[in-house]
Simulated scan of single mutants.
Amino acid sequence: MKPRLNKHSLAALTLAIASLNAQAELRTETVEYTLDGQVFSGYLAWDDEAEGKRPGILLVHEWWGHNDFVREQAEQLAAAGYTAFALDMYGEGKLAEHPDTAQEFMKQATRDMEQVKARFIKAKELLQNHESVDADKIAAQGYCFGGAVVLNMARMGVDLDGVVSYHGALASPLQAEAGKVTARVQVYTGGADPMVPSEQVAGLVQEMQDAEVDLTLVSFPGVKHSFTNPGADAFAEKFGMPVGYDEDAARRSWDGTLLFYQELFGS
Rank of each mutant, 00 (worst) to 15 (best):
L160G: 15
A148V: 07
Y188P: 04
L44K: 04
D100V: 12
D68R: 11
K224W: 00
V150R: 07
I138T: 01
E29T: 08
A74V: 02
Q103Y: 07
R27I: 10
E104A: 06
T228R: 13
F227S: 00
P173R: 04
K137T: 04
S165T: 07
Q115T: 07
E263S: 09
D255F: 03
A140G: 15
F227P: 00
D233I: 05
D48H: 11
S9G: 02
P99I: 01
V213S: 13
E62G: 05
H8N: 15
R111E: 09
A178R: 13
F120R: 13
A12W: 10
P194R: 03
T34C: 07
K122G: 06
S19R: 14
F220G: 10
Q186T: 08
A148W: 06
D193G: 03
L15M: 04
A250V: 01
K180D: 14
M89R: 07
D210C: 08
I17K: 08
A169V: 12
V164A: 15
L258P: 05
S41R: 15
H66M: 13
G142R: 06
A96Y: 02
V205Q: 08
A211G: 11
E237F: 08
L58G: 03
V70W: 01
Q200K: 02
E62P: 07
Q128A: 15
E263G: 01
R4W: 12
L170C: 07
A78D: 00
Y166Q: 02
E49C: 10
D214G: 10
D47P: 08
F239C: 03
H66Y: 00
A250N: 04
D193T: 10
T228S: 03
V201D: 05
D48Y: 13
K117M: 04
D134W: 12
A169R: 10
A118G: 14
I17S: 04
P197N: 01
I138Y: 03
L204D: 15
P3V: 14
R252Q: 10
V213C: 13
L217K: 01
P3N: 13
L15S: 10
T14G: 06
Y143P: 01
L5M: 14
A84R: 08
G37L: 11
M1S: 06
L26I: 11
E32L: 14
A74D: 02
K94D: 08
V187M: 05
L44M: 14
N67G: 14
G37P: 09
L126W: 14
P99L: 03
Q200F: 05
L170G: 04
A211N: 09
Q200V: 04
V181D: 09
N229I: 00
L59A: 10
V149C: 06
V223Q: 01
D134R: 11
D248A: 14
L35K: 12
R251T: 11
G179L: 06
V205E: 13
L58C: 14
G222C: 03
D248T: 04
R155L: 12
E207G: 03
T30I: 11
A12P: 12
T182C: 13
T182K: 14
F145N: 05
V163Y: 05
T110G: 02
K107Y: 05
R251A: 06
E263M: 02
